[in-house]
Computed example of a mutant assay.
Amino acid sequence: MANEKNVYGRPLQLCCGNTGFTREGFCYVPDADIGNHSVCAIVDEPFLAYSAERGNDLITPRPDMMFPGLTPGDRWCLCAARWLEAYHAGVAPRINLEATHHKALDLIPLETLEIYSSKAL
């Protein structure tokens, strides 16, 4: 995780507790993460409902996968493709750009991410 950078090329900040592909709290993208879990999202009800409708229930706890279940306001490392899908559907959650890995830029333009920055509230 050392030396990982956010979308601004600065050191990647912690997203939250037990989250991300590695469950270390950082949204970095190791080689094994083919899902690109790079976006530090602040989930809300519309996004959680949309995700469940798309077959990805992020609300129900899954202890066997070290997944606590999410409630509105929680931070979670989302796949960049899922965030972009939610963006096109009009339900993209806010994000913490300081904790969003630069690999998100492989799929999402920085200008789009900045519109959803938690600092733009």
Rank of each mutant, 00 (worst) to 15 (best):
P61H: 07
E98I: 00
S117D: 15
R10C: 05
T112F: 00
A89W: 02
G55R: 03
H88A: 06
I108F: 05
C79E: 08
L12I: 06
L70H: 06
P93Q: 10
V29D: 03
S51D: 13
R94N: 01
P30I: 04
C16R: 14
P11G: 02
E85G: 09
E24Q: 12
P11F: 03
G20S: 03
L58G: 09
V43L: 06
N3A: 09
A49E: 13
G9Y: 04
L58A: 09
I95W: 00
V43W: 02
N56R: 14
F21W: 10
G73W: 05
G35E: 15
G73L: 11
P30E: 04
P68A: 13
D74V: 06
T22E: 13
L70E: 04
G20M: 03
L121T: 13
C77M: 11
H102N: 04
V39F: 02
V91Y: 01
A52V: 15
S38I: 07
A52K: 15
C40Q: 07
L14I: 12
L97I: 04
L58F: 07
I59G: 01
R23K: 14
A89T: 07
S117A: 14
E111F: 00
V29E: 07
T71R: 14
P68M: 09
A92P: 03
I34Y: 08
T19N: 01
T71E: 14
I108W: 08
T112P: 00
A89H: 12
H88V: 02
G73Q: 11
E45I: 02
C79I: 09
N3W: 04
L110G: 08
V29A: 06
